[in-house]
Design a protein around this nucleic acid. Structure first.
Lengths: 349, 349
DNA sequence: CTGTTAGCGCATTCAT
DNA sequence: ATGAATGCGCTAACAG
């Protein structure tokens, strides 16, 4: 438990002034110093095991090389890959993420942002679903760059990185149509989060593009991205139109809920009804049947978001940008051609 | 984008000396100041929206109120709940976790610890399975408290928080025995990680306690906690002893691998063979059949680990302690009485 | 090229 | 009970 080694210890050993040590140790300013001296300093620093105190550096430069990362709940399987991607990218440039779970609670959110501001974070990445940016207003006012993940801000004044949700819905619909389905239901997510809304819009657009009319009862809105809400929405769908042969969903967990309802009604998937999810969650291929889904490159989204932020951090003039990543279709056992069931019996009964 | 508000701004508004503001704002020293003045200072701080600069404070006090948290890979479903628990507890006391993914790569591990040391973390929580403590030696030498999660350090010189792995194995074995099984195989995890080793010891002990001999081929060691390794181990088990009626595993993912092998061999679970996992991962109840498992209170483990660390942080004299949390048994459809080969009844029916 | 100087914002010792 | 002074470890502006 020896005393911490400072820049002055290194200076003493290398027989130079502390200021020179600072210059020699910083790659940015190393060119300002004689390479021999620099080498000597490096050697001395190495010998002593010197490690710059980043709080002192931060105090002086008013940059902390930390980034606030807001997620609703790390326990939601959606977020770990995103956070991992963020971490991977930030680490490359010497930044450290400060992770916070907000539980989508405005008060907790406010408090967290407060704390991070006090910690002098250099920017924020908000992987939260809620639509308002207000809690981040002060950060923005202070000139701190902010990047949104999984959502966008309407006027485009804030950088954002998301998957192309509409395109994802289109992939799902086209897959289902390609199998020959025409009686298609949709379990939508909550419309007050952008993901839910845009996936819904994508579904509508894709159906229209195919010239298929969406009957009033063919869409049911789940109150949350949860299994139970999905099960309820699915039940409602089938009550309105028992003749559906396929259900497109806005999220894998909603699709799991659909499985529950189908099982309860004695309907088989995919023989009686096809189901397709969205996100391609870990282990979703282990369900019975394995769920077809729209894959979202979560880790890449996090990585790209961090990339966006670093851009703005490094190059002050870099304006806000939006990055849209491509989803892809993963076909598994939950989708098949329609009417393996008795087509002649028809719907209605 | 106004200039940041410092303690001097508050002092000016409250018409006191900056030193007084510092005292008034810190709950610890507030008693040293007249309560009227204190109130005035608080009001001024509030009005200006003052937020203490934690880097300046840290530089002065050489405490950062941050804690380094090491995990192998956040993407492994084991860790999010643990990290969540850590975060929840640390936040209560104003600490912030600095999360790092090491990928169990010694070099990455070393570099991360280096970075965190430079950031003046006040302590470490290592939620990694296979870390020799060596990379943390310097931290320990510096007098920084360290808490291990999911593993212990032999000589008990380091605090640790784990589930009672042996007890967990015992619960699994007793459940299987209670169903009437006597021909029981074990798919063990890697023995160079403490979790794998202790669960194995627990299995052996429980079998011995029941007076059942473990035949040479009845245990197979998986090379990793992964599905494929589990599948291979399961295949080996059944090759040696096709008469097994139950398989106990050291981990849910190994159990999933067993499912794969059983399906491949045309064996039904639980009618032909029962399988029980360990961890009770998220969505493991969604497999077919739903996996019986030993539940590990992951979030609580993280919470308790952070608690241990805070103890040592707050009370310098607090020695290292070990905390063992209780596992519990979750019975689902993958375990049943042996030899139901003719019974048509499914689980729960 | 390198030494010197002056703070960054705060907590803390010493006066008063 | 409060003011004054000092320095945590570092970087940056200015000399030389």
């Amino acid at each position: 438990m020896h005393a911490p080694i400072t820049i002055r210890d290194v200076a003493r050993l290398a027989e130079v002034h502390p200021g020179t040590v600072s210059r020699a140790l910083n790659p940015q300013t190393r060119s300002l110093v004689n390479s021999d001296t620099a080498a000597r300093v490096l050697a001395a620093a190495d010998e002593l095991g010197y490690r710059p105190n980043s709080m002192a550096r931060g105090l002086k430069t008013s940059r902390s090389f930390t980034v606030g990362v807001l997620v609703p709940d790390l326990t939601n399987p959606l977020f770990p890959p995103i956070v991992r991607g963020i971490d991977d990218r930030l680490t490359l440039d010497g930044y450290t993420p400060l992770l916070v779970n907000t539980d989508s609670d405005p008060e907790r959110e406010r408090a967290s942002i407060e704390t991070m501001l006090a910690r002098q974070v250099d920017g924020f990445i908000a992987a939260t679903a809620r639509l308002d940016v207000e809690p981040l207003d002060e950060a923005i006012a202070r000139g701190l760059p902010v990047v949104l993940v999984n959502r966008t801000f309407e006027d485009g004044s804030i950088s954002a990185c998301t998957v192309d949700d509409q395109r994802g819905s289109q992939l799902a619909v086209q897959h289902i149509l390609g199998l020959g389905h025409t009686r298609i239901g949709y379990v939508a997510g909550p419309q007050n989060v952008s993901t839910g809304h845009r996936r819904y819009l994508g579904f509508v657009a894709a159906m229209e593009a195919a010239g298929i009319e969406i009957a009033p009862g063919d869409v049911s809105f789940a109150a949350a991205f949860r299994e139970l809400a999905g099960a309820q929405a699915c039940a409602e769908l089938l009550r309105c139109d028992p003749g559906l042969t396929a259900i497109v969903t806005a999220n894998d967990r909603l699709a799991i809920g659909c499985y529950d309802t189908l099982a309860q009604l004695g309907l088989r998937c995919p023989q009686d009804i096809s189901v397709i999810g969205f996100n391609d969650m870990l282990f979703i291929d282990r369900l019975r049947p394995p769920l077809s889904s729209v894959r979202v490159p979560q880790r890449e989204i996090g990585y790209a978001a961090a990339d966006l932020l670093l851009d703005q951090l490094t190059d002050g003039s870099a304006g806000p940008r939006e990055v849209l990543l491509e989803p892809s279709l993963v076909v598994r056992g939950s989708t098949a051609a329609p009417s393996l069931r008795d087509a002649a019996a028809g719907p209605g009964a």
